[in-house]
Amino acid sequence: MARSGTSAADSGLPKASAAARVDWVDYAKGICIIMVVMMHSVLGVELAAGKTGFMHVVVAFAKPFRMPDFFLISGLFLPLVIDRDWRTYLDRKVVHFAYFYVVWVTIQFGFKAPAFAAEIGWRDVGLLYLESFIEPFGTLWFIYLLPIFFVVTKLTRRFPPLAIWFAAAALDTARIATGWTVIDEFCARFVYFYSGYLFAPYVFALSDRARNHPALALAALATWALVDAGLVASGASEWKIVSLLLGFAGACAIITTGTLLARAHWLNGLRFCGENSIVIYLAFFLPMATTRTVLLQTGIIPDIGMVSLIVTIVGVLGSLAIWHAALRLNAHFLFERPDAFWIAPRKTGPALQAAE
């Protein structure tokens, strides 16, 4: 683990700055964000339709590792920046995500408020909006939780790292269920984020091995896929220790897959999605919900699985279209943090970075 005065080379991390792009990381993030959009799209369609389709199997297969790999990758570059002064650190790791949460929770609420008001009245809608700053709203819980992970990791960096890791693993296997998203998801996800931070050199070493031994990597991926599918089908994937192990195994599989795709320079669109994963994450709800409503109400596509697939695709592509429209209309504030909301000297380069 990188500590004060430890260089990137000493820690086993890339020598580039935290803002540099790492090809396989972007591929892995692209896979992750598409799986997230898929999960929300498929489950939303199936809930509204009252039945399941063939996409349900794909979502079930990805469930053990869908969020663990996203959180693990989110912690990978933290050793490079954790020893920054608190002002800079909070600006990059807390204010950054808080800004986008406030903007996009307000946008989501604007679309959903009329439906809420029809059920509970406008007064309670206002209270529900205020509550969203305590209880994360809808799909935005991920960027609500990330700043908490960043702060907790920095506060505990002087503690024995393995003690923190075992405590985090114990929280995951304890299956805490208070009903509060922040508490429950912190307990269930922190071990993966902290593992990305703590074991970053080993993650990059795994990627290097996959790049150098692609045939062996493919064999390992095939074995993992069979094991994951078998455990999901049998229900054993829900067992506490098995769930934890599958989370890490799946994260390693996504890292390996991202590495092999980067090595072959295949599916560059997937890499593009990874480079702009936060754009997709913030905006996919609108094209997803709109397409779901249109397809289900018109019934032009009777197969629920195909509806789910189309909604997923439109959710991804539609969010990128919204981003480009915002740039053309000079609505940069939707995806870039304005100068007024920086509390430390502004970095150069794009406002949305995988490592930041």
Results as ranks from 00 to 15, higher is better:
residue 3 R to H: 12
residue 5 G to F: 11
residue 7 S to A: 08
residue 16 A to H: 14
residue 18 A to V: 15
residue 24 W to E: 07
residue 25 V to C: 12
residue 28 A to R: 01
residue 35 M to F: 13
residue 37 V to K: 03
residue 40 H to A: 03
residue 42 V to C: 11
residue 43 L to W: 11
residue 45 V to P: 10
residue 48 A to D: 06
residue 52 T to N: 13
residue 67 M to K: 12
residue 86 W to P: 02
residue 94 V to G: 05
residue 95 V to L: 15
residue 96 H to Y: 12
residue 97 F to P: 01
residue 105 V to W: 01
residue 107 I to G: 01
residue 110 G to P: 03
residue 111 F to P: 03
residue 123 R to L: 13
residue 124 D to E: 15
residue 126 G to W: 05
residue 128 L to R: 15
residue 131 E to T: 09
residue 133 F to Q: 05
residue 137 F to E: 08
residue 147 P to M: 09
residue 154 K to W: 06
residue 162 L to G: 08
residue 162 L to Q: 09
residue 169 A to I: 08
residue 175 R to Q: 14
residue 176 I to P: 02
residue 180 W to C: 04
residue 182 V to C: 05
residue 184 D to W: 06
residue 189 R to S: 11
residue 190 F to G: 02
residue 190 F to P: 00
residue 191 V to E: 05
residue 195 S to I: 03
residue 203 V to S: 08
residue 211 R to S: 13
residue 218 L to D: 03
residue 218 L to I: 05
residue 221 L to H: 06
residue 237 S to M: 06
residue 237 S to I: 03
residue 246 L to M: 14
residue 247 G to T: 06
residue 249 A to K: 07
residue 252 C to D: 00
residue 252 C to V: 00
residue 260 L to G: 09
residue 265 H to P: 00
residue 268 N to R: 14
residue 268 N to K: 13
residue 270 L to C: 03
residue 273 C to V: 13
residue 283 A to Q: 05
residue 289 A to S: 15
residue 294 V to N: 03
residue 296 L to Y: 02
residue 308 S to M: 04
residue 316 V to K: 01
residue 321 A to D: 09
residue 325 A to F: 12
residue 325 A to Y: 03
residue 331 A to H: 03
residue 350 P to E: 07
residue 354 A to E: 11
residue 356 E to R: 13
